[in-house]
Design a protein around this nucleic acid. Sequence first.
DNA 1: CTTGATATTGACAATCATTTTCAACTACAT
DNA 2: ATGTAGTTGAAAATGATTGTCAATATCAAG
Lengths: 141, 141
Amino acid sequence: MNKEREIFIRFLEKSGLKATAQRATVLDIFLKTEKHVSADDLFSLVKKTNTEIGHATVHRTLKLIKAAGLAREVDFGEGKKRYEHLFGHKHHDHLVCLKCGKTIEVLDPKIEKLQANLASGHGFKVSHHRLEILGICKSCQ
Amino acid sequence: MNKEREIFIRFLEKSGLKATAQRATVLDIFLKTEKHVSADDLFSLVKKTNTEIGHATVHRTLKLIKAAGLAREVDFGEGKKRYEHLFGHKHHDHLVCLKCGKTIEVLDPKIEKLQANLASGHGFKVSHHRLEILGICKSCQ
DNA sequence: CTTGATATTGACAATCATTTTCAACTACAT
DNA sequence: ATGTAGTTGAAAATGATTGTCAATATCAAG
Ligand SMILES: [Mn+2]
Ligand SMILES: [Mn+2]
Ligand SMILES: [Zn+2]
Ligand SMILES: [Zn+2]
């Protein structure tokens, strides 16, 4: 919350960008949800507080939040981006239910290790990876 | 090649669909490239042979090729789908170069196994998974 | 071969997420 | 307080994909 705001403000300063009310609102509302939100999800949430903020601004601000290291983009193959909190959250992968859309966050250090080995074995310098396991969750079966 | 054509024709029959010249052309050209093609890539290739085929038809036919089990959709996070051969190719994951776009096909049975365990440990019934490791390839470093 | 029911086609418009444009507006260093 | 950038929302543009529809092709039946 406050730590994140701090980081965001510093990021803006450092980048020669301005701290505006719109950016503060979008960040605050993003931080308040623990879901994997799309730009449009967030736009809807933002509208409840401030009808004046445009959707382009939400898109633009999400990009900044990501650039500030506060969000990670995730892609569940829906044809749109989703964002999740990054600050204070460790890396994880996702199980995605094809029926109800529920996601479970998972992490297997052995998989992470093997992935790194696999890439370096091909001379690849890894930036990041994306692992999604798609299927039907327990309660949807 | 011929085996795939056979499979495609059978799939069309079985589904009450018709074997048209356009579908044959799109399939043939898809089979001739070993790349991960987008619909538009394929449309460009098709146009060299037959100027009369529309882009909607290429999209529609790729869907059919996938439904027939001859192609797999891959998503490198570019905001568009790509397709690769499925018939006679075993499952693999990808290393994707963020600089030149090159992809390397990789497979680690240990990772595959651990993924399956991870999912079943959460009561998930896996349909498929997507693993892409993004980074900089050897020659781009 | 001809027919006719039904599927398919390409052109075009529509959709959806995201980005761009631009003129009015705001932040903030001086 | 003022000027210079950067920022904003609205609307238009973009790019991938899909829907619509009238004209056309397929193919099983006669
Ligand atoms: Mn997550
Ligand atoms: Mn591949
Ligand atoms: Zn579910
Ligand atoms: Zn490269």
